[in-house]
């Protein structure tokens, strides 16, 4: 039976790929992200706002299991102080144990804890959404992309564009619209321009003025989406700033080294061509 399933799945991929291929959403627009390009860095305030949006809106359905509260303090991230991160952690109740009597118990979160899951297990989460599973968001901006075509794809190599996932998240959160007149969708679903197949089990999560910003940033769906997409770009790649900084040093070293080797080579070979 399992073999048959695999065989059918294979058949589906090899034969029916074109049919499934039609299930793509609209192509998201590219955004001007502070973290794109060779010197792009995260905007600390934006990451802090994005965390706020995640905690107050996304977290009720989506996990962030690879992120610990200590990560909020690490360089290259949202730049919280140790005390601030401890305070955020303490707002969560974490299940720990078993204790000396063998019982599990609840306690306030610590820096070493990870963001708690929205449900104790996958089945519990699915049952809340009629079988649909809200994905964990830790690496979502690396797990989503869109086709740009061969020419743009090659160009992206030179301009180092890697922010497709953030573009997608931002577009998706802004992509809710009324379904076409001839399409009927049930109440548990919504119509989204950018979601593959357009029918998405996530009803519009954001509305204007939903999350309070204290830094004067506009409290709009557009801004919330932008901030949370940036935040999720950081959760997917928490060492990005170190990577680019070291990368620049490595590049300088390699280019200088290559230059020295080139002139050494010229000198060594000068007599070989005479």
């Amino acid at each position: 039976m399992r073999k048959l399933t695999v065989a059918l799945a294979l058949l589906a991929t090899v034969v029916a790929a074109p049919v499934l291929a039609a299930e793509v959403g609209a192509k998201p627009d590219r955004q001007a992200w502070s973290f794109s390009g060779p010197f792009g860095m995260f905007d600390r305030a934006q990451l802090q706002r994005g965390l706020k949006v995640y905690r107050e809106v996304c977290a009720s359905c989506h996990g962030l299991k690879y992120i610990a509260f200590r990560n909020l303090v690490q360089p290259g991230g949202p730049g919280f102080s140790d005390a601030e991160a401890r305070a955020i952690a303490a707002e969560y109740q974490i299940t720990d144990g078993p204790d000396d009597t063998g019982e599990m118990f609840e306690r306030p979160g610590r820096l070493s804890d990870h963001f708690p899951p929205p449900a104790p297990n996958e089945q519990a989460l699915r049952s809340r959404f009629g079988g649909a599973l809200p994905p964990d968001l830790s690496v979502i901006t690396k797990a989503r992309s869109y086709e740009s075509g061969l020419a743009i794809g090659l160009l992206d190599f030179f301009r180092q564009y890697q922010e497709h996932g953030a573009d997608y998240v931002y577009a998706l959160l802004n992509g809710y619209e009324d379904p076409p007149a001839d399409v009927e969708i049930d109440g548990a679903q919504a119509w989204n321009r950018y979601f593959p197949g357009n029918r998405i089990a996530m009803v519009p999560p954001l509305s204007d003025e939903q999350v309070e910003y204290t830094d004067g940033s506009p409290q709009t769906v557009d801004q919330y989406a932008r901030d949370v997409a940036a935040f999720l770009a950081w959760t997917a790649e928490p060492h990005m700033e170190a990577r680019k900084r070291i990368g620049f040093q490595v590049m300088i070293f390699l280019i200088v080294f290559a230059g020295l080797l080139y002139f050494t080579k010229k000198k060594v070979w000068a007599d070989a061509h005479a």
């Binding site: 890697q162 680019k244 590049m251 390699l254 080797l261």
Partner: peptide, 20 residues
Amino acid sequence: FGLICFFILFAWFVFYIPNY
């Protein structure tokens, strides 16, 4: 010299577009 030039391309991928 050839190797270091190759490493420049390698580093381009590793540090700037690691998931390309």
